[in-house]
Design a protein around this nucleic acid. Sequence first.
DNA 1: AAACATTATCGTAATATTGCAATATAAAGA
DNA 2: TCTTTATATTGCAATATTACGATAATGTTT
Lengths: 108, 108
Amino acid sequence: MGATKTDHFTDKQNQIAIIAKALGHPARIAIIEYLLKVNTCICGDIVNELPLAQPTVSQHLKELKNAGLIKGNIEGNAICYCIDEKTFDILKEYFSKIILTVTNQKCC
Amino acid sequence: MGATKTDHFTDKQNQIAIIAKALGHPARIAIIEYLLKVNTCICGDIVNELPLAQPTVSQHLKELKNAGLIKGNIEGNAICYCIDEKTFDILKEYFSKIILTVTNQKCC
DNA sequence: AAACATTATCGTAATATTGCAATATAAAGA
DNA sequence: TCTTTATATTGCAATATTACGATAATGTTT
């Protein structure tokens, strides 16, 4: 047991779940917000902004990248991170559709 | 270690992370989508819709309820579940703001 | 009351996540 | 080349999640 039964659900359901899961940690939310705040690609200093060790931050960045939420461009010996808009759009669209559907239904 | 360092992040960051985390499982996405599909509160038969045992579904419902994503009203010996719009609104607003910020910034 | 239906909780096994020290890798500069 | 700087990977311990059988709790029906 313990393993998620991924193959029992649709691709879309898994896609949304994977993206949401990647955002399901305050450190990763903090990384996203920092990328937004500096308003440009940032090379490196995310580690200094977070109360976490460098390997931990590196791991969180990896998960955000795997989920498609950020992009990382190699720039010399540093890496330039920035937000990948497309994936956030998928989420926004998804939630917008949910809210539109819900407001049209009478509930308890 | 292994425990998330919740207290090092802001309340808002933790709030968004908790909601996103609750959506970070395909079974819970499937539950939400089923609630949308039937277009009304549904009493019970969520278990029959999912490829999971009753205790597992009950646990997923609990997590969705804890995150504020669904509401459950007791109706006789059954329970009537439906989507809690407010929490989805929080998410939609949050992502809309992110996308608005990103589109205004030039990136790699 | 007894039987049934519905949902929750407990206990537990399997697996995943989180966090970090230590180490590796890769590019830049002296 | 050697050192420094920046990031990734490895390995491991602590904790969390997922899933389910067994059982409890609660209300309904007969």
